[in-house]
Design a protein around this nucleic acid. Structure first.
Lengths: 242, 242
DNA sequence: AACATGCAAATGTATTAACAATTTAAGTTT
DNA sequence: AAACTTAAATTGTTAATACATTTGCATGTT
């Protein structure tokens, strides 16, 4: 490692040192919790005052890259953000891209009468016929979620659409409605007889139930969706900004 | 305004000055874009060296509360207009919004070693001591959620804070950290022995587990939070805009 | 072995000092 | 009036120095 601190440069020393430290802490000898040389030595080696060195390292400490401890020394913080960040986000994105990462184990459509809850959300009378789409979805290890979707009659779905395509693509491209708002409710329950059979789990195994109330940009109701997830195989992940 | 800088106090001068500045910039004469007294004068008035004053104001500048300009002066930053939506809240706020009167059934703090998962999120070494806050919360019908919170050591919590106050109020007002981002994971499990005892439910009853990874506006990790909810008594609701 | 003491090492705090760089305003020249 | 020059004001940079505080270890004591 060559230390190139240029006292005649227009760039302030502490800025140069800051950059130097940033590359320094990437070196294998320091990378994972390694201790930096002590301040007095490092300052002398760089030909700068201890104050200037601290001016630089203060910033890195504030950023959480360095951890200084009185009486002990200064070490490099462990940092591996990317791995677990991706881990949390990945499933959310899969969820958001509806249908992309899953296979449809089975698929079924029928016309049913709207129940009270759905009629209320759709703002229609309870006797109205609506399209119900049932899907069992999973991956190589078998099914892990059972979905029931109900669609507002105004959309114009017939039930003969190719539902192996992503649902929202069908809605947007073929029917020109844009799912924009989703109100979600999550709860946990024990699997009922019928649910356990569908998901091939034991009756009484925990199931995560997600209801979605989906609306368009004008806040008009489009879809009511209920999903039954095998709890052991599902983690719901969200990123929220305040 | 009375300046009370105590040279004999065990609290470092720069820390005292920092607090002083924080209250100073709330004053109407400085509040929105007002110029602070120049460094030399202010330092003299406070009876401290200019460097010490700068040590304090540096931090506020880094936080975006002060704007310094060479040759001009130091002014208080204009209050940021909040554009982001208040989409998530602390538990206290959540419950208050819903009108649920809850109580802290029990509350306990202790210092523990960070485990691998937390250390990774906090970007600290696994041996580091961190503050753990355990809370059992409920209402008239008994407890319905057990929380475990772990806090980044950088925040400076001692464990002696009054945790009957809203947590995020403590963090923001007393420790000047702003929880801004939350990464959440939800899953459902059957209650373990210990969990069932805490929540006074039968072992094997379904439990909704919510993990939160909370960060500040600079994406620096602040808190890891894990909550065990009695599934029957809890529904998680969220509105998402695409 | 357990505990207490003390020393050395390392960062933390604080002061003083001097000069550099930038901006604003005033003054001067064209 | 416009352009240039100068000076003052204010923050930015850097250094040297001294002492405080915390931690860990070595040493000694019980």
């Amino acid at each position: 490692m060559i230390f190139k601190i240029d006292h005649s440069s227009p760039i302030p020393l502490h800025a140069q040192v800051e950059e130097l430290l940033r590359s320094l802490i990437e070196l294998p000898e320091y990378k994972n919790g390694g201790f930096l040389p002590k301040e007095v030595d490092l300052a002398k080696k760089l030909g700068i005052s201890r104050n200037t060195l601290r001016q630089a390292s203060n910033k890195l400490e504030y950023e959480g890259l360095l951890i200084r401890k009185k009486g002990v020394g200064t070490k490099v913080a462990q940092k591996q953000v990317t791995t677990h960040l991706n881990e949390w986000h990945s499933f959310t994105q899969e969820m958001n891209d509806k249908g992309v990462a899953f296979t449809n184990v089975s698929l079924h459509t029928e016309w049913v009468k709207a129940d009270k809850k759905i009629a209320s959300f759709f703002e229609i009378s309870p006797e109205t016929s609506i399209l119900k789409l049932s899907r069992l979805r999973g991956d190589d290890d078998g099914p892990f979620v059972f979905f029931e979707s109900y669609f507002h009659p105004k959309i114009g779905l017939t039930g003969n659409e190719d539902f192996s395509r992503p649902l929202y693509e069908i809605l947007e491209k073929d029917f020109h409605v844009i799912p924009s708002f989703s109100n979600e409710r999550l709860k946990a329950r024990l699997a009922s007889e019928i649910t356990s059979k569908r998901l091939k789990i034991a009756k009484g195994d925990p199931v995560l139930i997600r209801e979605r109330f989906v609306s368009d940009p004008g806040n008009r109701p489009l879809e009511y969706n209920k999903g039954f997830y095998i709890a052991e195989r599902f983690t719901y992940t969200i990123s929220i900004k305040r």
